[in-house]
Structure formats: C-alpha cells, structure tokens
Design a protein around this nucleic acid. Structure first.
Lengths: 226, 226
DNA sequence: ACCGAATGTAATCGTTGATTACATCCTGAG
DNA sequence: CTCAGGATGTAATCAACGATTACATTCGGT
C-alpha cells in the first residue's frame, strides 16, 4: 500500500547514525519480503519485481543491493539458514540427555519439523540452482557446523560402543540423505502418492527416522512406542 | 485423451521431403526435444519457445498439442518415467537371486544409477511443480507399480524372517526417502559440500544403501564387501 | 554550505508463457 | 473429382519477468 513512499524513514530503530535515508534499509526489507513471498507461494513466486512492489520501490531498486536475482535469493537463503541453525540449537538445548544417539535424533527431528513448518525455506536452502552456495561464506560455514556436530556425536557413539558400523562420515551422509529425502517428499506432496495421508506424514517421518537409527545400533533397544 | 493424432502419422518416413503435411508428428517430436533439452541444460532450460525453435515450428505450435507448459512437461515426465521403468525391470531381470533383500537392493541401485546418469529426467519426475502428477494416469500407475513391487518383496522378506521390523510400508517409504535424498544430493551438488568428491559419490551412495539395508536385517551378514 | 557518493527511478531491451485470429493442409463424403 | 470441415501450424499480440542504462534525489563528511 503506502502510496507515500518516503514516509517510513528512520522513525524506528538505528537512531545512532541515521542509517536510513530513502527507504530505511531496503536490503533487509527485500530479504524479509523474499522470505515471506517464498513462504506464501513457493520458490518461483519470488520475483524481483514482486518483492520490490511489496516493499514499495521501483523494480530496479533491488539491483542496487544485489547484482542479480541469484544474489538476492542467496541472501534469502542465508537468512533462512540462520533461522534453521537457531532451531537446531534450541532442539539440542532441549535434549538434556547426553546419549549421542538421542542427540542425533533430536537434530534429525528438528530438521524434519523445521522443513515441515517452513517448506520453502528448506527448499531455497537446498536449491543449488536458485542460490549461489559457493559464493556465500555463511552458508558454507553453517553447513560445516551441522556436519561437525553430527560427526562428533557419531564418534562419541562409536566410542561408547553403540554402533554396529564405525563410519561416522557414511552414517552422517546417509542420515542426512534420509531426512533430506523425507522433507522433500513431504514438500513435493509425494506422500499422498505413496499412500500416506497428510496428517500422518509427521508421524511417518518420525518413525522413518527411528527405523534408520535403530538399524545403526549394535544392541537395539526394542523400545515400544507408546 | 487424443489418440487420434499419432495414428495418422503411421508412415513416419518421408523425412525431409515436403510431402509430409505439416510436420509429421509434432507431439512426439516436442516431447523428445523437451527430454533432450532438459538433459542438456537442466529443467529450467526447457521452454516452449526453445523446444519449438529446435523442432522448427512457430512458438505457438506446441499449444495445439498441449494446453500449457505444465502439460508438455507432464508428457515429458511420462516419457522419462517410462524409461526409468524399463531400467528397473532390466535390473530386476539381471538379479537372478530370489533373495528379496537382494532384489530390493537391485531396485535401489538401479534407481541411484539411473538418477546419476539422467539427473534431469529424475528431477522432472520428482518435481510436483513443473508437472501435473495427479492429472496423469500413467505416472500414477507407474508409481504404484514400483511401490507394489517393493512392498511385495518386503513382505516376502518378512515371511522368511529376515527383517527386524515388520512394517513393509514404513520400510518402503524410508528406503524411498533415502535413495530419493541421495539422488537429489548428488544432483544438487551437495556431496561436494559434505566432503565427498565427485568420483566417490557413486561408491558412497551404494554404501549408504547397504548401510540402510543392513540395519533392516535381523541377522546382519558379517561385512564382506568385495 | 557544498560536492561526491550512495541510493532510488524511469525507460528500455530481450525473453518467456499464453491467447487470439487467421492461414494451410489432410481427410473423406458426395 | 471436388469441396466442406476439422485438424494442424502461423502471425500478431499481451503481460510479466530479469536485467541494463541514464538520470534524479538524498545523505554525509569536510
């Protein structure tokens, strides 16, 4: 809305150096709107023009902050990844047990929950077409952190003699592929093609994760789910 | 659906001679070119105009055979799926053992091999955005056939007392998610972000599959990969 | 108070998907 | 053989997109 465009200057935050002149800070507004637009209508609903339209600037304005669409989408992906990291950290904090398997499970479940609640954020992080993964330091660092956490937990599990196979890298990649595949199947609506109703999906995904983790254990716990 | 158009092109020869009326059979040519175009430059490289340009017709000509782009892409997906089915059948034929686990493994490996060699064909089959899965009878039927094969094999494995968990549906979905995730990770170039070189990918994927399958077994065979 | 630089705008280009009115060609009834 | 009618392809056009360029505005240090 807001036909009067220049009226939003500054009144909120950033009073110190007066960082807002024309729009406030267009860059962050574009990223936020891109994220929202992606969440609403999917990845291909995000266009430079539509984002600009919503923020209330001209179609060319975003190009002052991003050289092309890929750069904008990459920034959006960085924001999405940052939120995902917060989610992972929170899940790990909630899981008070020091059993590495339980902590791994917590990470996997957090991944699945996050992907289910933020399908397009997950999608944009995964897409190597829409974003420039290699050109973003933060995306690589965030990725490496998750990988390191997983491998560390798996090594601990190996040290405790819990695992049937002692290959943290392989287990980590396999687990990643599993949750990645589950998330994508959910998002792509493939569960309905495979005989899983929408409201069963969450439960199925969790049981899939448990099925995989149980298969890793040397001494499966035969724990009955209530 | 119009089966009439293809029938009238029975002769099919007469190639370059102008005797053919307009094009011969544009519909099939468009699908073939769409498949080729996807294989060359990825899914986004497929556009109605480009396909028409390659076939040598006007940009509007394809719309005589497909109401919109989704319909064309769906037809391309059907063709890709048909080829994939052939691959699966061939792999099952090659696997002479009647051990259900080995046959399941053969299906999984065929899936991975096919996705690795035809990344975009895999992608277009998976994409629920570019294609109209629900509107295609053959896609649903092909999907159901694979699912039925897998469940049948898993039931047989259960009958033989091989499995630790007797839930064919869950195992099937988990396995599907795993190979789906592996294939997508490879295509998206994520392996390189996770410490797996390009030429190691095939081996890693196969070992992931084996890791998962071994976890299903009640009496895991002692590691003996040649 | 001013001038340079950062920021946003307007106009424009080439491409895409899609629609419409029109032209062409085959088929088959008479 | 002819000619109506339907199937097939074309030309012209539209709106939306990403992207580039030249220009205008506003900030902010000196």
């Amino acid at each position: 809305m807001s036909t009067a465009k220049a009226s939003r200057t500054g009144s909120g935050e950033s009073g110190a150096s007066g960082s807002s002149y024309h729009h406030g800070n267009l860059r962050e507004a574009l990223i936020a709107e891109g994220l929202a637009l992606a969440a609403e209508g999917g990845l291909e609903a995000v266009s430079i023009r539509e984002v600009a339209r919503r923020v209330g600037v001209s179609p060319a304005a975003p190009f002052r902050h991003f050289p092309d669409k890929v750069a904008l989408m990459t920034a959006v992906a960085e924001e999405a990844m940052a939120r995902f990291q917060v989610e992972i950290a929170a899940a790990l904090a909630r899981e008070t047990s020091d059993d590495p398997i339980r902590r791994i499970r917590a990470i996997g479940k957090a991944f699945l929950d996050w992907a289910r609640r933020n399908p397009t954020h997950f999608e944009i992080i995964s897409s190597r077409r829409a974003i420039d993964f290699a050109g973003s330091a933060s995306l690589g660092a965030d990725n490496a952190r998750i990988q390191a956490q997983m491998v560390s937990l798996l090594e601990e599990a190996g040290r405790r003699g819990l695992l049937r196979v002692d290959d943290p890298q392989l287990i980590q990649i396999t687990g990643r592929a599993l949750v990645y595949g589950l998330a994508r199947m959910l998002i792509d609506g493939q569960f309905s093609s495979w005989g899983v109703a929408e409201d069963e999906a969450e439960d199925v995904m969790e049981r899939s994760l448990d099925l995989f983790l149980a298969g890793l254990l040397k001494h499966p716990v035969t724990e009955e789910r209530s």
